[in-house]
Design a protein around this nucleic acid. Structure first.
Length: 872
RNA sequence: GCCCCGCUAGCCUAAUAUGGUAGAGGUGCCGCGCUUAGAACGCGGAGGUUCCGAGUUCGAGUCUCGGGCGGGGUACCA
């Protein structure tokens, strides 16, 4: 990438290469962004936090977007007089470091710390208003040691427990695989068919808080609606019944099967019972039935991913067992093992009602099982109604349902549950989709779980004095499996309780644990306890949290739970960590592909005037592919470092803010960046032209032109303020463009003293309005306008709009007849409705449309519209 | 599969949480000016079944229902 053209010293151009480092140093020297753990002053606090990055190597455009958005908020709130906490750190444990270790024989710690060094420098070049004195990485023993303490407290409080659960097992590598490491049912490295395997693992009891986590969503009024909906569905409260089906003959001492259903009303529509492949009864059958065993094996090879299991073709195996129906003892139904029944949800078994559930219907059609309609849709004819290809799961009237016949489905649910309870066959139950959080990982690069397994005493907590349990540094990644497990000495310890030979837990925590409390640690990052209580009480909750929508469920739900668990164990006073949440969209780019099918990076491609694209080196024409999320595999990435060195941080920031609403995906385009760059130069020139003439006295009267400019200035202040408050940064940018256009027009107008004053007022306002978005340019313009002041824009207050200049002089009102626009009139704001309506009727075009018609209704929305409804 | 979201000039998008004249701003295109602020600059202009189909309403880009396309999540990627 070229360094760009030399910039002549005397050219009135903004030299960002010189200015950006200069202002970054100035902010640092003045400590503009440092705050105390416990500030002593009066200002209200504001905690801005962006999701901290995983140190993958270099920052990418998604980071630039995320941290730009957060920085705008932080700088704006600072100018509004808040004491702003804006920290940064590193989500430093995780799988990629271990992959790098295996692939390139570099230690995960070295790889991680080198990445952090690189990425910290990149972030610093963006000019972010961060308090770097609070920086930490989750792989610091200091951080994870405190995390171990939090876990031990939760264990003591009964919020952690150990139980069996399933993992993806690669039998060749002898390793547990992440879902993303399973490709088409095979291990990504070995290619071996993956199996589910049961392991003893640690769980955090998030389900204990399910009702609270659901109920509190209503109070999160500064969270996006869609995130709250997604979380509510994920927690998934349902009301239904748990009921037991008796087997017609026992199987391995199992006499009945429990089922959970949300549709007890449809029990008469049952045609089969289906078990999850991991269900004890399924396993009991498989023990002596080769067909069942092979089907269960096949299901195990699908791995643990819900997306894979649910998207797979519905398949089953008839065990030959039958169950009696609780309402009609004479009838019995076949028991199948089905690949779409999840062991983790409900009772791990369902009754199939093909008429009322699409999956059950698909299954019944495939295996020739009966389909009995039991719910008649409201508009259907009871004499002819049949279930075709689509199951009906809506409300309706019960048919073919014995004692439930004629009831609507809601009342039938109640009646069915009452009957189940009378028969002793089942009972009402509230069920949750949410499962407990499995936190054990069989990996090296994570926080060690601080327990010891003693053959005599069982599970023993590591004594607090021995924390942190540190990762050993001398590890060997060549053998398959967990390096902690095959380390020669690390796991061998004596039991803290009985002193006998014992072994450390070799599992480490899920990295979501690390990110579930970092926001609290930032309040007092050097505290000797996990969270300095007074600092946390002062700063928390986070006022504005910003990050990707991909974290809408897991990370945010885990952090909400962890905060409650930390309160329960005496570490925090709050329940909800994030009072405000903003979720940003992705950064996308065109992709380019040669005829031979090779992806090319944008910098390898030249776009021609006719819209086509060629390879720079060979001139070969390349196909322009879809605009999609930047990814290394498609090579449609743009390196932020290259953009910043070529155009400067302010240009990158401005472009990111200018085009799209931040919650939506944005397309990175060369033309867009170039436009942002031109605007930085344009603003700089406008400012230089004003700085060149001495400050004018404020005149008692303003010319019409000057007054109009002043109105633009104050309306822009007003509009930008509203836009920033509502995250409409693209609108804020547009308003500033407008004011720049007005300044350009003023530059060309007949000069007068009042206009000179108004121009300076306008550019001073622009300087502050752009300061959150283009902080370096704002400082540079400010020193030129006020060379002697010594003030930094970073320390200035936000401008205030004069309401008299904001108010509109006149409004244009649209006049419709029967909803069709027929003309417009102008009126004073708040004009008398009668005079507006008579003026509307007098408008010539309107008068023509009304001629000879009788007005039956007139609608007047003051300041906007008049609509006449006439008789036909 | 299931849950959630998005779709407006060639392209990105605005249109007060609450329905009221479809266009603020950028980019691209066309034209004019200037001839050096050069990766030019300044000014002007054209450009539309608001994804499709129904419904509610005096009035729908906005609300409801159905469909299409695209995206996020799906519990061990972060």
């Amino acid at each position: 990438m070229s360094d760009g053209p030399p910039i002549a010293a005397d050219a009135p151009r903004y030299n960002f290469r010189e200015a950006e480092p200069k202002w970054q140093r100035a902010w640092e020297e003045r400590g503009c962004f440092h705050v105390a753990d416990l500030p002593s002053g009066q200002p209200p606090k504001y905690y801005v936090l962006e999701m901290f990055p995983y140190p993958s190597g270099k920052i990418h455009m998604g980071h630039v977007r995320n941290y730009t958005l957060g920085d705008v908020v932080a700088r704006y709130k600072r100018m509004r007089g808040f004491e702003v906490l804006h920290p940064m750190g590193w989500d430093a444990f995780g799988l990629p470091a271990e992959n790098a270790a295996r692939e390139r024989e570099i230690h995960p710690a070295q790889w991680t710390w080198e990445n952090i060094t690189t990425m910290r420098a990149e972030l610093q070049r963006m000019g972010l208003s961060l308090d770097w004195s609070r920086e930490f990485a989750t792989c610091d023993p200091d951080y994870y040691g405190h995390q171990q303490k939090l876990f031990l407290d939760m264990l003591a409080a009964g919020l952690a427990e150990r139980r069996e659960s399933w993992v993806n097992w690669d039998p060749v590598d002898g390793t547990v695989l992440a879902n993303e490491q399973v490709i088409d049912g095979r291990g990504w490295r070995s290619g071996a068919l993956v199996e589910k395997k049961q392991l003893a693992q640690w769980f955090l009891r998030i389900t204990a808080y399910a009702p609270e986590l659901l109920a509190a969503l209503d109070q999160l009024d500064r969270w996006p609606e869609r995130v709250r909906i997604m979380q509510a569905k994920w927690i998934g409260r349902s009301e239904g019944a748990r009921l037991r089906f008796a087997l017609t003959r026992p199987e391995a001492a199992i006499r009945e099967v429990e089922v959970y259903t949300t549709r007890p009303d449809t029990l008469f529509g049952m045609s089969f019972l289906a078990l999850a492949p991991e269900h004890p009864l399924a396993l009991a059958v498989a023990a002596h039935d080769a067909g069942a065993a092979s089907f269960v094996d096949e299901c195990r090879r699908m791995g643990t991913s819900e997306a894979v299991i649910e998207a797979a073709e519905k398949k089953g195996y008839d065990t030959g067992l039958r169950v009696a129906h609780p309402f009609t003892a004479e009838k019995s139904f076949p028991v199948w093992i089905a690949n779409f029944v999840l062991m983790e949800y409900g009772a791990g078994a369902i009754f199939g009602c093909p008429g009322s559930d699409q999956r059950d219907l698909d299954f019944a059609r495939k295996y020739g099982l009966p389909v009995i309609p039991v719910v008649l849709p409201p508009s259907a004819d009871p004499n002819t109604y049949e279930v075709g290809d689509e199951a009906y799961d809506g409300p309706g009237t019960m048919i073919n349902s014995g004692f439930l016949n004629g009831l609507d489905s809601e009342r039938a649910k109640e009646a069915a549950i009452a009957e189940l309870e009378r028969l002793g066959a089942g009972s009402r139950e509230v069920n949750w989709r949410l499962r407990d959080w499995g936190v054990s990982r069989q990996r090296y690069w994570g926080c060690p779980i601080p327990v010891i397994h003693c053959p005599t005493c069982g599970i023993v907590s590591v004594p607090e004095a021995d924390l942190p349990v540190q990762l050993p540094e001398d590890v060997d990644f060549r053998p398959p499996g967990n390096p902690l497990d095959h380390h020669p000495t690390w796991k061998h310890v004596s039991c803290p309780r009985c002193g006998g030979a014992a072994q450390r837990e070799t599992d480490t925590f899920d990295t979501f644990v690390d990110s579930s409390w970092y926001f609290a640690r930032f309040c007092s990052p050097h505290s000797v306890v996990p969270v300095g209580r007074r600092a946390a009480d002062f700063w928390l909750p986070v006022d504005q949290y910003i990050g990707g929508i991909e974290h809408a469920i897991l990370h945010l739900l885990y952090a909400r739970f962890f905060t409650r668990a930390m309160k329960a164990t005496g570490h925090l006073s709050i329940e909800e960590p994030f009072a405000g949440l903003f979720t940003q969209g992705m950064v996308t780019h065109e992709s380019y592909r040669t005829a031979a099918g090779h992806w090319l990076y944008p910098e390898e491609v030249e776009k021609l005037a006719d819209g086509k694209a060629i390879r720079r080196d060979t001139g070969e024409e390349v196909a322009i592919g879809r605009v999609e999320a930047m990814s290394k595999s498609k090579r449609n990435t743009v390196d932020p470092e290259a953009i910043i060195s070529r155009y400067g941080a302010d240009t990158a920031r401005w472009f990111i803010l200018s085009d799209n609403p931040p919650e939506r995906d944005m397309e990175w385009t060369e033309a867009g960046v170039a436009g942002a760059f031109r605007f930085t130069q344009r603003l700089f020139r406008l400012a230089e032209n004003i700085a060149a003439s001495p400050k004018a006295e404020r005149p008692p009267q303003f010319s019409k032109t000057a007054h109009a400019l002043r109105q633009s200035t104050h309306r822009t202040i007003e509009a930008v303020t509203v836009a920033l408050e509502s995250f409409a940064f693209n609108v804020a940018v547009a308003r500033i463009h407008e004011l720049a256009n007005a300044l350009g027009e003023a530059e060309r107008s007949e000069p007068d003293p009042g206009l000179a004053w108004a121009r300076r007022e306008a550019i001073e306002a622009v300087t502050r309005l752009i300061a959150p978005m283009m902080p370096h340019l704002a400082e540079e313009i400010n020193t030129r306008l006020n060379p002697a002041s010594g003030m930094l824009v970073a320390e200035m207050p936000w401008p205030e709009a004069d309401p008299d200049l904001v108010a509109a002089d006149t409004v244009t009102i649209a006049i419709q007849v029967m909803g069709k626009l027929r003309g417009t009139i102008t009126a004073a704001p708040g004009a008398d409705p009668n005079s507006v309506i008579s003026a509307a009727m007098a408008e010539p075009n309107v008068a023509r449309a009304l001629a000879g018609k009788r007005i039956v209704k007139q609608i007047h929305v003051p300041g906007r519209i008049v609509n006449f409804v006439v008789a036909r």
